[in-house]
Design a protein around this nucleic acid. Structure first.
Lengths: 243, 243
DNA sequence: TTAGCGATGTTGTATATACATTATCGACCA
DNA sequence: TGGTCGATAATGTATATACAACATCGCTAA
């Protein structure tokens, strides 16, 4: 095992065993270097990585402390639907229901940071897993940032993939809720009776502005979000809270 | 700006502009060091951090390459309910409905990796935001790992917080779906009519085994999961896929 | 008493160097 | 033609050093 990894294990064990509770000071770089007979840079790397993993917090001039683990939060991975299906070794195909230019509904215009009444690009696509519909993707796109959006063939590439190509390094914010779907959504998902659906609102933006807003609707009976997650520290706790 | 940050910006710009597409080789540590007149260790740090951010992949002996951004996935943060409510500056309180030792239902026993018929600790708690019920927490706990679980006061500390204290550094896996709740859940949430609910299954484990399994049910009309998310590369793409 | 100052310790950045480990490719030989 | 070996280059680990930036605490002087 690498020396820096040995030091990480040492600190990790102190935290896991409870010997070092929240906010407890961690041995300083210099002290660790001496104790383990390594250079300060090596000890530093161990603490640095623990900090990136959220286990400790570091403050210049002050020291390293065990992070407040109470406010841990979990991270859930949201993949795009095609990847998700490919991951399960299932077949994916898509049907394009709508591909048009429309005047943006007011909510959409404000979400895309455009003036009321602006024209936007609009697509509605149904995604199938092994022939069964699992997602309706209703997407509005900013024409200034992605002018060629309507000219793509969305049976061979998903809008998400195309947008990632055109505007790499976008950020996104999401909202997940449980809803009863509108009748036309229900019909596209081939639901006999209305059933609860997972609905994901996704808004992506790049440096130049908001790129697109999508509403992804999944039937509850055929779709689950999730898989493995790892705790990650949110670093909300402050040293002031000690005592 | 620090020198290593300057180099990061340089590479970032190459990727964002599309000048360096997926799998494109990134200038090597030595070449960057020379071009920016810094030591190799400084150039290295820039590439290292970009790698941790998922923007590039590095292979010893081979080099550094722009990561496949198509298979980006987003990370959704799941906080515990008390933190979530505190974040909105709302009041949180909890009502304990059940706190008992029971013989584990078969599905629970297998989830906790216990023998069929084992006894487990069981709690049902309703969480309120500003007086309105927003979550029913139905939790089964492994008594071998948390023997004192039933002796806590869950109106002052949430089970999640208590478990984090007793077994720090746990991992969790989650499953999120949309369901229609059971009648008794519906009643605890004070729902007039059955409405779609977000249901989160959470299973936490530490080094010694599975700690607990929880089913968290939120009424769709009063709860949304989400907020901001950042893209993170999943690193699924392989170099073999080039060409 | 209190405001300010300086000593000390801690983390952050940067450099130059050494060697280990691995991937790739070309040259040489069978 | 095909396989093996070695040179080369890239990343990974580790060290010793220097200085900068910041926090904290104790001491001194107003």
């Amino acid at each position: 095992m690498a020396k820096f990894a040995t030091i990480k294990e040492y600190v990790y064990q102190k935290i896991e065993s409870g010997e070092w509770p929240e906010y407890h000071p961690v041995t300083s770089e210099n002290a660790l270097a001496e104790r383990f007979s390594v250079s300060r840079m090596t000890a530093r790397r161990a603490l640095q990585e623990l900090s990136e993993e959220g286990l400790v917090t570091r403050t210049r001039g002050s020291g390293t402390f065990v992070a407040p683990l109470k406010s841990q939060s979990a991270l859930l991975t949201i993949r795009n639907i095609a990847d998700e299906i490919a991951l399960r070794n299932h077949r994916h195909h898509a049907e394009v229901k709508v591909l048009e230019t429309v005047v943006a509904p007011n909510t959409v215009a404000s979400a895309l940071q455009l003036e009321i009444g602006s024209e936007v690009l609009h697509s509605v696509i149904v995604h199938f897993e092994n022939g069964q519909p699992v997602q309706v993707e209703d997407r509005y796109v900013n024409p200034a940032l992605v002018p060629e959006y309507l000219q793509q063939d969305y049976t061979s590439i998903t809008p998400h993939e195309y947008l990632c190509e055109v505007t790499p390094l976008t950020e996104a914010s999401h909202l997940i809720e449980a809803v009863l779907p509108e009748p036309q959504i229900s019909e596209m998902l081939q639901l006999e009776t209305p059933e609860p659906c997972l609905q994901i609102q996704r808004r992506t933006s790049c440096r130049d502005g908001v790129v697109s807003q999508a509403t992804l609707t999944h039937p509850g009976s055929r779709f689950r979000l999730g898989g493995h997650m790892v705790f990650k520290n949110t670093q909300r706790g402050k040293k002031e809270n000690i005592q």
